Amino acid sequence: MTNIVLFGPPGAGKGTQADILKKKYNWVHISTGDVFRYNIKNNTELGDLAKSYMEKGHLVPDEVTINMLKAEVDKNEDAEGLIFDGFPRTEAQAEALSKLMAEKDTQINAMVALEVDDEVLVKRLLERGKVSGRADDANEDVIRERIAEYYRKTDVLKKYYQKRDKYYGVDGEGSIEDITKRLSEVIEKL
């Protein structure tokens, strides 16, 4: 089983590439945002708990998030690999994910980060904003702050995975096919 953490700033193409990789390698894409939305929408015990924190404006504790992810991993024990998207966000979460994988007798093989120039990201997100109608993709100042926040928060994770020789930066510019090819070259060496 090959398991990766797929990272990249907003607009890097994580969702697009995750969809391609899951089909190509018969993997399961676990998006933290999707997992949260599913649990909240379906009023699961964990979803109700997460919602209670969110309604108070609090961050959902790592333990709740990990338990949601554990349920997803349990549902997909026969998968040939997992792509984690949107998690971990902190070193403590990375440790918790590592522990969860060890309990399943597997591991995170790599953090693969799509690296894209900030100006390219801004242009991509403004274009996406025209199509999607997402307010956070329509304002350049908001976009630049989201990108800056990504770098502030993920630098610690980059260092965490670099220390373990599990960090791989991949050029996220060019055609979708070219990016997929570069990602596949990394993945097939794991």
Rank of each mutant, 00 (worst) to 15 (best):
T2A: 13
N3A: 08
I4E: 02
I4G: 08
V5W: 05
F7L: 14
F7P: 05
G11W: 12
A12D: 04
A12H: 07
G13N: 12
G15L: 11
T16F: 11
I20N: 04
I20A: 08
N26I: 05
S31A: 06
T32A: 07
D34G: 01
D34M: 02
V35P: 00
V35E: 04
F36P: 06
F36C: 15
R37P: 13
R37A: 09
Y38N: 13
N39F: 14
I40N: 00
N43S: 15
E45R: 08
E45V: 11
L49K: 11
L49V: 14
A50H: 08
K51G: 04
E55M: 12
K56N: 13
K56V: 07
K56P: 03
H58R: 13
H58T: 07
H58M: 15
D62A: 03
E63A: 11
T65M: 10
I66A: 12
E72A: 03
K75G: 10
N76W: 00
A79P: 02
G81M: 02
F84Q: 00
D85K: 01
G86T: 02
S98I: 00
K99M: 02
L100V: 12
A102L: 14
E103R: 05
E103N: 11
K104N: 14
D105F: 03
Q107P: 10
N109F: 07
A110I: 00
M111R: 01
A113S: 15
D117T: 12
D118C: 14
L121M: 10
K123M: 12
K123Q: 15
L126H: 13
G129I: 12
V131N: 09
A135H: 09
A135C: 06
N139F: 08
E140S: 06
D141C: 00
D141N: 05
D141L: 15
R144L: 07
R146G: 10
I147T: 10
I147Y: 00
I147N: 08
A148T: 14
Y151R: 11
Y151M: 11
Y151G: 12
K153V: 04
D155Q: 13
V156P: 12
K159Y: 08
K159D: 08
D165R: 06
K166A: 14
Y167S: 06
G169M: 09
V170K: 00
V170M: 00
D178G: 05
T180A: 09
R182A: 08
R182W: 08
L183W: 06
S184Q: 02
S184D: 13
I187H: 09
E188V: 05
E188C: 13
L190V: 10
